[in-house]
Nucleic acid binder design. Structure first.
Length: 575
RNA sequence: GGGCGUGUAGCUCAGUUGGAUAGAGCGUCGGCCUCCGGAGCCGAAGGCCACAGGUUCGAAUCCUGUCACGCCUACCA
């Protein structure tokens, strides 16, 4: 907010200087302010004068002086406006301008941080979408958390978000899955025959087979899985349902819910795939590959490296056909932006998907893909094998149960999605500085503890009033206030850039500033001070801090405990 | 071979879209508890931003090339 005021002060000034002929420009740029790294450079700064120097035929510092001279600030909201270095303009607001905004934080409470930067654009966020052939592994977990948090961040920034999970429930893998259950079932019935190598190997198949046996007894003992379509369907439906339910529960326990579970099979039920193929035929985008007899989609005309097979030589549409039909359907449902979260190993599919959508006349830039790099599980610095002998991955559920939901979520979201993540299980469990979960949560608990203490003494948090500004005389108090008020802008940038990981860094920095403030002054400047105006001002400040911490943690899906104790003895002695 | 990604402190990683003296945590070393929660705080050391060119007022950031590592390169699902 103050950032916008700073920008408009200078934009107005520039317009005035151009209007009066003091500055001549061929192009009239919009001045955007940035937050300087160093406090010595004021609250907001711009290097616009260096950029304008050539066009205006004036030295940057001279331009800066002219701009500053033309600033109109009748309310005297500015403390300082100065030229620095090669021609930067540094603006510093009066302390009142900052502290008075704490009232806004207090009033907005849980909605503080929300903006309408997204303009209610409708976003379809598709994530996880793991094949329903087994339990989720840690790689899925990372994608799940990134997607979930990004969804929260987008929603907070004014996007209209729908979360969707795409289920690949047709094709050869479903046949293999049913066959896997069939063979494990027969094993349980004592039939001695080899387990086919192309069936799924994991132990979970056996567990499902036991449930199947309990449900159906021996009635399907001699069913012909390959030959009897109806019997085969019983096996396929059963195992598919079991695995899908498990994934659903796993995600829900991880705090992740979807608005929609979209089945690939529904694309066929609703004739969407054949509708797509007809449309592509009509538009002349499909031709027959003379060498193989397959039908190809001319994606190379829309940025893809080569054309892609869309109907196999046996007449069955490829997976790519489903995918294009599915994404075209997303647009048909009225979404403005499609964001997919994929494993990085699928990056090669981006050009063909984008080409496919482009061929249908959809804006290609409206389709975005976030790539999630692999997770390396580590235990005390030693790599944990991601795949066991049988080729299965480490289950997400096991990791979640070992380190806890909060730590797991924070670890998955704390790195840039497209860089590999080392996930140290021992580190995630440890209650130490390595583990930002504890650090941040502890900050929140500490603040709540202070507020409780104040409340017990009969002191409530009060609205902002002018005397508070004079009372907040410590440099950390202004620093904390500035950081609190930076939160909406941070969210906006996280949303627009699709980079939710910044929230974790923000939280760590904010909490660190608070811990420093608290520890340095605990003997000399208590928050619950004997001086009424200082006490009121500081209580308002830490209450705003509490609000921001709680709001940000909520976006991450990490709990914000009001009390944390080292051990049970301490807990019992606590009030 | 081609494509995508990564390369920043001993380790794990940020770096606000091209800004001022490149940051954080861990680890190492040295300090701080007459407690509103020490699960905390303060300080120090630690850098040729992989390498070489280029673009410009200005580059970790953009362009080109080289090197190293990872992934992809199906009528599979």
């Amino acid at each position: 907010m103050l950032e916008r005021i700073a920008a408009s002060l200078l934009n107005d000034s520039l317009a005035r200087a151009v209007g009066s002929g003091e500055i001549a420009l061929s192009d009239h740029p919009e001045i955007v302010m940035e937050r300087p790294k160093s406090e010595a450079h004021g609250d907001f700064a711009t290097g616009i004068c260096m950029t304008l120097a050539r066009d205006a035929r004036r030295p940057p510092r001279k331009l800066a002086e002219l701009l500053i001279a033309n600033i109109e600030d009748p309310e005297q909201i500015l403390e300082r406006a100065e030229v620095a270095g090669p021609g930067f303009i540094n603006l510093t607001f009066r302390r009142e301008a900052w502290f008075a905004r704490l009232q806004e934080v207090r009033e907005r409470g849980a909605t503080f941080g929300q903006t309408n930067a997204g303009g209610n654009q409708r976003v379809l966020l598709e994530f996880v979408s793991a094949n329903p052939t087994g339990p989720l592994h840690v790689g899925h977990g990372r994608g799940a958390v990134v997607g979930d948090v990004l969804g929260n961040v987008l929603a907070a920034a004014g996007f209209d978000v729908t979360r969707e999970y795409y289920i690949n429930d047709i094709g050869k893998q479903m046949r293999h899955l049913g066959a896997s259950l069939y063979h494990r079932y027969r094993e349980l019935l004592g039939i001695d025959e080899p387990y086919p190598p192309d069936c799924y190997q994991g132990d979970y198949i056996l567990d499902i087979a036991k449930d199947f046996l309990a449900r159906h007894g021996e009635t399907l003992r001699d069913a012909d899985y390959e030959g009897d379509e109806a019997a085969g369907k019983v096996f396929r439906d059963f195992i598919h349902r079991a695995i899908q339910d498990d994934i659903h529960d796993d995600l829900r326990e991880f705090g992740i819910e979807f608005d929609n579970w979209f089945a690939e099979s529904s694309l066929y039920d609703d004739e969407l795939v054949y509708g797509l193929l007809d449309e592509l035929e009509r538009k002349g985008h499909i031709y027959t590959d003379e060498q193989t007899g397959a039908r190809k989609f001319r994606t190379s005309g829309f940025g893809d490296d080569e054309d892609r097979v869309i109907i196999r030589d046996n007449g069955v549409p490829t997976y790519f056909a489903s995918d294009v039909a599915y994404h075209a359907n997303k647009f048909a449902r009225g979404f403005d932006v499609l964001i997919d979260i994929w494993g990085a190993d699928h990056h090669g599919y981006i050009p063909r998907m984008r080409a496919g959508l482009g061929a249908l006349g959809h804006p290609q830039e409206a389709f975005e893909v976030l790539l999630i790099q692999f997770v390396n599980l580590v235990r005390d610095g030693v790599p944990v094998s991601m795949s066991t002998r049988k080729g299965t991955f480490v289950d997400l559920r096991k990791v979640r149960e070992e380190v806890g939901k909060d730590a797991a979520r924070l670890f998955f979201i704390m790195r840039r999605p497209d860089s590999q993540l080392d996930f140290d299980l021992e580190l995630a469990k440890r209650a130490s500085m390595d583990n930002p979960v504890y650090y941040v949560q502890y900050g929140h608990a500490r603040i709540c503890s202070i507020l409780r203490k104040a409340e017990e003494a009969g002191y409530a948090v009060e609205d902002y009033h002018a005397e508070m500004c004079a009372a907040l005389e410590l440099p950390e108090e202004l620093e904390l206030t500035r950081k609190i008020l930076a939160y909406p802008g941070l969210l906006e940038s996280c949303a627009l850039n699709r980079e939710p990981h910044h929230i974790v860094f923000y939280l760590q920095d904010l909490v660190k500033t608070f811990h420093g403030y608290y520890t340095r002054h605990k003997h000399t400047a208590k928050i619950v001070s004997g001086d009424p105006s200082k006490r009121q001002a500081r209580l308002l400040l830490v209450d705003c801090l509490r609000i921001v911490l709680r709001n940000a943690l909520a976006l991450l899906g990490v709990s914000a405990p009001e009390r944390m104790y080292l051990n049970e003895a301490e807990e019992e002695s606590a009030p």
